[in-house]
Design a protein around this nucleic acid. Structure first.
Lengths: 332, 332
DNA sequence: GTGAAAGCGCTAACAC
DNA sequence: GTGTTAGCGCTTTCAC
């Protein structure tokens, strides 16, 4: 039992394919009587339109391709939720791919998605290899690069400067009187934005004649458990730190739990600083510092850019949307 | 500057469309010399195949539609990551939609996705309204229902029994000597699986002549902050509880933080029990009980089912894959 | 090993 | 207000 086609619906309703098409889409003039008959027939036959044919024929799709590096912490799911919500009501549909922070895999996913002829593509970061950039350029659709502003965008760019985020955090911590800094991170080889934050942080430390008195990193991806473990190890080796900067809030929360277990007073003796501003951080048993990144808003802004870019207007658009993270959790 | 078509590549390589198609797909016999010439031309012209045309023509797609209710905690992103990973190498591509726990929205998303002619569809839960079930039935593709086993599946079913999870947790807590129970939950009107866990939990309480001595729920979605707030409120009203069951681990973690703030000893005076077995729970400063649900494994199992179901074999397949959560975090 | 013809299910453009 | 013709870019089928 094959699925009914538009033609079968049309025959059932006693009209031509074209009239049925117009009635179902609600375009142009179709007598309300005819329209009702077509819609009735379609409903009765459980007709579901074939978007492959629709898009091939009309030479446009409602697909927005989105590639994110990971789904293993809440950050990118929130971005996706923002994109999905921002696209609601536009008739457009997001299609997601996960690259696992793997540049080669990202390229293959992008190639695959482009073959579906999306009307726009959203990718994470500004540091795609040249071959991937070429692929994106030749697609002739709006390309939106998310999250990071430190680099040269292909087309549109929505996010924040991770270098500046690291710098600002270092300045705030120094202003709060901290001097003996440690660093705890993960997967820095793959997570370029974490690396940019660390680099920014160190630039400011060096400008003040300071540096990291100790650090711990690992190649696996960030988690609370890893943050706890690396912090315990770091404090065993360098006990006299008064502040630790983490690659993100997951790691920082683990750091807090390590300090609690070791009896290190947070924030009095040790200030813990992360990045993201996760919901988690607001409820933790001791305050930790973090830069609040508007993840959902970044997703929504990207969706708005897509809507404008594929819209009829084509009026001049802002090419870059800058978000500035707010630092929270530092007293004095 | 339009994108090159297969025909243009074929002309460039001096062969027919058909030969170019075969060369690019690596099917049938094409002389290696011809093949190289075609591939060279395609690469030089930045040719990206048009899957709309491919799928329309061949009457099959590589799309697997997936609908999840939410992206606002880590649970469903992990399921999606499992599906995505499980599909890797199959040539199939997952397409995600978010229903926001809204049945009407879910139906529209499913309708929309079906119009892309996916080769299989994965949805969350067993409690779709009749109209949605009809839609899925008429699609004539494998339908996989995820997460929940308490109900009648349309086709394939992968997950765990939430009723049993609630029952088992209640039994374990009673066996551990707890008697004065409280409940803290959120969005129970929408989150049917949380409701099933609560119902199972209460069945066992009643069988033991017990019940909830107090409860707090709210309509907003679960979060650590909400768990903390509701727990504080519950303990103000009913201070003599010795155990609180939460709708999930996010809420339970908030409950732990509330207890810490109030100076209530966990787990000695108060046992905190959640659901999911999040990574977070293992690192918390005090042990809380939880049922560990294999979210990623459920996603991977669903992907395996899809691979088999759309595979050529069509040998008899298991229709249901049962996972059993393990309870952790209860001593004695 | 390669090519020509037909057609997938729909819409655009134009006619009536 | 409705129908006709042509064609989107590819694969299938069959011929050579």
């Amino acid at each position: 039992m094959r699925k009914p086609t538009l033609e079968e619906v049309a025959i059932e309703a006693g009209v031509s394919k074209m009239t049925a098409s117009r009635a179902l889409r609600g375009v142009a003039d179709v007598s309300s009587e005819t329209r009702d008959r077509v819609i009735e027939a379609a409903t009765r036959m459980n007709y579901v339109g074939n978007r492959l044919a629709l898009s091939l024929s009309s030479q446009r799709t409602n697909l927005v391709a989105v590639v994110v590096p990971s789904m293993s912490n809440i950050v990118f799911p929130e971005v996706l939720a923002g994109i999905s919500a921002g696209l609601d009501g536009s008739g457009m549909q997001a299609v997601f791919g996960i690259s696992d922070y793997d540049m080669a895999k990202e390229r293959e996913i992008i190639r695959d998605m482009l073959s579906w002829q999306p009307c726009a593509i959203i990718v994470t970061g500004l540091d795609q290899p040249e071959e991937t950039v070429e692929l994106l350029r030749h697609a002739n659709i709006p390309v939106i690069q998310l999250m990071d502003l430190d680099g040269t965008p292909i087309d549109f760019n929505v996010g924040l400067s991770h270098g500046a985020a690291g710098e600002n955090m270092a300045e705030a911590l120094i202003a709060a009187g901290r001097r003996r800094f440690g660093y705890v991170g993960s997967a820095l080889a793959r997570d370029l934005r974490a690396r940019k934050r660390k680099a920014g942080f160190e630039r400011v430390l060096h400008a003040h004649g300071l540096g990291f008195a100790g650090q711990r990193t690992d190649d696996v991806f960030s988690s609370i458990a890893l943050g706890k473990q690396l912090t315990t190890s770091l404090l065993a080796a360098v006990p006299d730190l008064d502040c630790i900067y983490y690659s993100n809030d997951d790691m920082a929360s683990g750091g807090l739990f390590a300090c609690m277990e070791l009896g290190v007073a947070v924030p009095d003796k040790m200030l813990i600083a992360g990045f993201n501003g996760l919901d988690l951080v607001n409820s933790l048993p001791a305050p930790i510092a973090t830069s609040r990144s508007p993840r959902r808003a970044i997703g929504e802004a990207a969706a708005q850019l897509v809507r404008q870019a594929v819209g009829i207007g084509r009026e001049p658009m802002r090419k870059t949307i800058v978000f500035k993270p707010t630092i929270v959790g530092i007293d004095g």
